[in-house]
């Protein structure tokens, strides 16, 4: 079964536990600056939005990479950067329409979410359920369900 990260921004409180978990998982340090998931705070609207790679099926980054450093992890469907192949040309960062591949000056390579090999640390760390790891075929279905709940069939029910 293919799974994907599912983000419900309404639940996010901005605690940054996910950012610490991501940086620790990948670099062994609690350091939001190195996190592949980022929480954006739209202060004046009172909104906090977690954002990371959605692992496009036809990934722009993967197709753009001139040295074939981004490959598909067949087990998870994640598009994964092979650091030893990456030459740091940043073409993928231009190609990605969402900005979720990022250059890291320290290493001279790019980084992006790799779904932690199928056990996403951010989802485990999130205390509110704003990030979950769900059956990919179910993405959007909870929203559908919520709207379905608002559908007015009261007339028939009482008839």
């Amino acid at each position: 079964m293919q799974k994907s990260l599912h983000i419900d921004a309404n639940k996010c409180t901005g605690c940054l536990q996910c950012e610490m978990a991501c940086s620790y998982e990948n670099y062994g340090v609690f350091n939001p600056a190195k996190s592949r998931i980022k929480i954006f705070n739209f202060e004046h609207e009172g909104r906090k939005v977690p954002y990371t790679c959605t692992q496009c099926a036809e990934a722009w980054c993967l197709n753009a990479c001139p040295v074939d450093a981004i490959r598909v992890d067949v087990a998870t469907g994640a598009k994964v950067v092979n650091e030893s192949t990456c030459v740091g040309c940043k073409v993928c960062t231009i190609a990605c329409p969402f900005g979720t591949v990022n250059y890291v000056a320290d290493t001279g390579k790019v980084q992006k979410c790799d779904l932690c090999g199928g056990d996403p640390a951010c989802a485990t760390a999130c205390p509110t359920g704003a990030i979950t790891y769900v059956d990919a075929d179910w993405t959007g279905l909870d929203k559908m369900r919520a709207w379905a709940g608002k559908t007015d069939n009261a007339t028939r029910a009482s008839a």
Binding site: T13, C15, Q17, G46, R47, K48, P127
Partner: peptide
Amino acid sequence: LVTNAACFGCTIACG
């Protein structure tokens, strides 16, 4: 009230 909010690292989010 618009929403609640957390300080850094907080899993309570009283704000």
